[in-house]
Design a protein around this nucleic acid. Sequence first.
DNA 1: CTGAAAGCGCTTACAG
DNA 2: CTGAAAGCGCTTACAG
Lengths: 319, 319
Amino acid sequence: MSQPTVSRALRDDPKVSEATKQRVRDAAAALGYSPSAIGRALSVGRSTRVGLVVTDLDNQFYAHVIAPLHHELERLGHELVLITESSDSGPVAEHVVAHGLCGVVLATTTVDSILPARLRDRGVPFVYFNRTAPSVPADSVTVDPEQGVRELLADVIGRGHRRIGAVFGPRNTSTGEQREQVVRAVLDENGIGLAHRDVLHGPFDFRTGHDGMRTLLDRDDPPTLVLCGNDVVALGALNAAKEIGVDVPGDVSIAGFDDLPTSGWALVRLSTVAYDLAEMSREAARLLVGRVGNPGAEPVHAVYPTRYVARDTVGAPRS
Amino acid sequence: MSQPTVSRALRDDPKVSEATKQRVRDAAAALGYSPSAIGRALSVGRSTRVGLVVTDLDNQFYAHVIAPLHHELERLGHELVLITESSDSGPVAEHVVAHGLCGVVLATTTVDSILPARLRDRGVPFVYFNRTAPSVPADSVTVDPEQGVRELLADVIGRGHRRIGAVFGPRNTSTGEQREQVVRAVLDENGIGLAHRDVLHGPFDFRTGHDGMRTLLDRDDPPTLVLCGNDVVALGALNAAKEIGVDVPGDVSIAGFDDLPTSGWALVRLSTVAYDLAEMSREAARLLVGRVGNPGAEPVHAVYPTRYVARDTVGAPRS
DNA sequence: CTGAAAGCGCTTACAG
DNA sequence: CTGAAAGCGCTTACAG
């Protein structure tokens, strides 16, 4: 039995007879043999490993993308390797090709990142996840904030809030920018403006929300409601309010974006904009694996709808 | 310039002259060339990829081990790939060798798992993380619950609790067993027993704590304090109490184990047993990488101390 | 349907 | 200090 035959049999190549396939499989099982993925990778010129590029692995948000992403990749016969992007991002592209990853999902790309261009130049397939860098076209899976934000703001405005503050995400991310734009547009339609001093920006993390909330609440005349760039930020804001004894939503209302599991906790009950993050993660896996098999095709853009989930952190403003 | 010379130069082999090293490095930089890790892996017979084996990637606990583990592995020139262990665990060992991982950290091993034996038989280095399966010796990094539990129970008993309930972790994990034993031993020293009906068991997840708390609280005469197997369980318990309007610690006290960042939130303020989880994760990385380089050495067991962090979920029992 | 040959990109003795 | 040869475990034409 030659090596190529074994190889073909184990890959279920139709050119091998059923009889020998069976023999090979039996022998493999008996010997506990399974083909070396690395031998295969070297031979084929590409592995089945995909990288997830993030900046802060610590962030609760990513736990909720890693789990479904990993699961779907596994289903598709791929492995997940974690990559963190340092400020520079030069090394990342090289790292990816040096380690022979077959593709990567970009989950924390900034608008001005050079990583997408680097990957494109090196011919590494990738998909934008939750963010986009318009300069380099590629598959993407993102969220359309409009519907959810409209519903949220309808609730907010309906309850009488007029003095609205915000702790948005970073300015150099498509996600942060887009959410802010939609909020501004919808408020504008309702004749409500955001005072410059009531609008803060920062990374999508706990501290941003926490410190931002303190800043806003330290004022003599704080906003009656604070819109947060995402749930992790909102969680920071909520905790900051609690720390200084400010009642939510009695004294101030807070809203988030993402609807993480934590936001639904009885202890939290965050009013937020929801979408199907797990499904998005799976779609990213599918898109990427599809792309690897078909590099020439037009980029596809999967966009997920949002809806508002009213819980207990948005109430009427204190009159 | 021959291939071996380039190879040696890039690895900083002392047998290559500084002059050629420099030339090679310059050329590599100019060409954007970096050596293929997969070529190297095939040649050397081992990669620099280590696997983290867990059951539920969703669990908040693992987010806090993945981040430092990844970081330390990166520092040591290794990659992190995620592996989930299905019930069976047969495929895992094969997967690991098929994909040429140089080692794995086992973070959810049960006492009766066959995975350690499988890995040992196939010569794959591994380290037990936070759990241990005594049948197969290997490096381990674990926690010694005793000090923390003593401090916790001193507080609990000092406040007057006598009717104590518990939602411990799974019986088939060393971690769950050990914590339960220490609790029982210390209570015993104080002449306090755990009523059989007040002791529940289950996986270390939110639902276990949540449902366990409901069960305990549904009774006519519930315990005045509930000890939880870990923080995620305690978080479930805390939320269950909140859901049914039971005040913590007014009506019932709750304690955890792990001191996750969430437990310190103003919204949570969980009294819990703390230890250095991030450092443990880094140590696991170091141990494993060290083991790969020196398979013959005696197993080393890193044990981390615990201490009690009193916050707001343990109070006096209602009299 | 099966096998011999060549090659994927490295590294490791072995010469020189 | 440098290079030619062989091999790591696969796959892919190419014959038969």
